[in-house]
Nucleic acid binder design. Sequence first.
DNA 1: GCTAATCTCTGAATCGATACAGACTGAATC
DNA 2: GATTCAGTCTGTATCGATTCAGAGATTAGC
Lengths: 354, 354
Amino acid sequence: MKPTLQAVADAVGVSRSTVSNAYSRPDQLSAALRGRILDAARQLGYPGPNPTARSLRRGFVGSIGVLFTSHLSYAFTDPFAVRFLAGVGGAAERHGTSMLLVPLPPAQTEARRAVENAAVDGFCVYCAADESWAVEVIRERGLPFVTTAVRDDAGADDRFVGIDERAAARSVAAHVAGLGHRRVALLADAVLPDAPAGPLTLSGVHEAVHPTTRGRLTGFADAFAEVGVDWADLTLVNAAGNSRAAGAEAVAGLFARPSPPTAVLAGSDVLALGVLDALAQRPGGTNPPVSVTGFDDVPEAAAAGLTTVRQPAEEKGRIAAELLLDPPADAAAGHVLLPTALVVRESTGPVPRS
Amino acid sequence: MKPTLQAVADAVGVSRSTVSNAYSRPDQLSAALRGRILDAARQLGYPGPNPTARSLRRGFVGSIGVLFTSHLSYAFTDPFAVRFLAGVGGAAERHGTSMLLVPLPPAQTEARRAVENAAVDGFCVYCAADESWAVEVIRERGLPFVTTAVRDDAGADDRFVGIDERAAARSVAAHVAGLGHRRVALLADAVLPDAPAGPLTLSGVHEAVHPTTRGRLTGFADAFAEVGVDWADLTLVNAAGNSRAAGAEAVAGLFARPSPPTAVLAGSDVLALGVLDALAQRPGGTNPPVSVTGFDDVPEAAAAGLTTVRQPAEEKGRIAAELLLDPPADAAAGHVLLPTALVVRESTGPVPRS
DNA sequence: GCTAATCTCTGAATCGATACAGACTGAATC
DNA sequence: GATTCAGTCTGTATCGATTCAGAGATTAGC
């Protein structure tokens, strides 16, 4: 059994408080005594105050939770999420705070329990899927949190860092529309819960469940509505997951159809890269060319020549952590909207003549 | 102030123990009473047992620490580390355990303190640099740990998962030697503490401080010794960090020298990719060709056509976490050596005729 | 109808520290 | 010589739960 604070106190012949002070408030005792205490502690093999007991008494833990509303391994597979984590990590490091990655069991009851049981001082909620239940639990615990999406139901004191998904999506769609494309497919992940991979019909964008997806699809639709292509004329394609493979799988049969799309607008870069993979595998090879766009501008996008919308991933993580660790006095400053930029590369071009 | 267990107990008119049981041991009370307690808790806004208090009493936390003996952000920048984390994360998820990423301040005293203060049940130590001090602190705390390198001073009960660095390095070097290369540069990160980027002279491999680096350099040297090129004939180049940019910087002046190396063996893929970057920037372009090899086989290596040694990154993380969370009964099973494989791609070729 | 077994629930002890008010000491001030 | 003050150290209350032996109340067995 490891010795406790008390054991050290007994060994030196001082009170427990004094030993505690030797560690946490060196100015409260003489240097000489402190030295004796620390020596005795070393002798006894006392490893310093127990972190858990300390947290309990002090009322804070010294770590923040990062919540991914999907598999934890997803967080490391998605390059955007990795950059986000890097941002959070950098900020946490500067604050001397640890990051707790909490895996969420698939069942909601247990997932709630996991959030309830996390020993943290607050949460960064990475909004990869529906996060409202998590926000609810966190609020019940009375812990501060920051989300990475602009929430409709955000209270005045709620903090978030996001982008204008709709405007950003619109910009890339306008670029594609400007190139003359009119037969267009929109590819997104988890449009409806449990929808299979492949084409999908929705009476309107409002049916898409996840706010981020909804925002992006709305932006795409906006741009095409402006050139006279309305929602019903667009082909909506669902992907079963946000990964390269899922993207490729979703569009697998698409180009063999009677009048295939001349452009595919994907809701994320990884999906778009999957589309490029699928196109490369086509019997016809790269002919006729199909324009493809992504979203996020992850590092891989540049190498693949993917036209996309850039959003500052690491910055998003950094700001999320900072809003959490160092809340602005002014509530309005807790609502951060990051800039986005259209990045045109080789994956988009004019409509080929048929 | 959030209500406590006691508050709920008072509200329902039962003892604190009973409320505790309602949460943690449902079989210890009648379903009816449990229902009443949970209802009352909801009414009062009681968010469930305080995780910290629970950990203190129970004696365990439910999370494992992952230690990077360098900046935390490094962990997200190095693709190998990211895959490793993914492996750890997957295993943690399966065990219902959280992962705590602990940032280490640059100063050792404070870094030790950070390890002492981490509320975890054990550590995965990712050996990116010297980790012996961390192992020492962890051992003092009496916590279990797993390292990702074969440690010379490993006790019988110490667990680790690693590769045979020397043999793996030797295999790729032998491939290069077999192609006829004799003027060769070896590129590694942090060969000596505080050494600047660029060529460096070492009386022998033993001087390299970090065991992993030492192992790889030794393997490289082995293969060349066999074809009559000894240590003094090899150009050792130091990189200031394990990143693409650091790799490029380290070899910047190398190819403008009188008799430049015809091959560069790098200690990691990211360094090797940096070398390729530097070569692409050369005035002469890609002529004469220089063979380049990496180490790890990260996802980017395939795209770049980099010859390298594959080691299973995610597997390494998974096994590390499993050794920690689910220690084998047999101590010998706690020492895992993973297989490696030489992967030959386009970045290596025969020596060009001069 | 009586003992034994089973269910429920309680009370006190405990996990390992920190906070804070106050006791004591010796030196400085007037 | 009394007063004040700063510097050290101690004692007690507290953080918020879990554990476990055992008290009562029920049910079962015969």
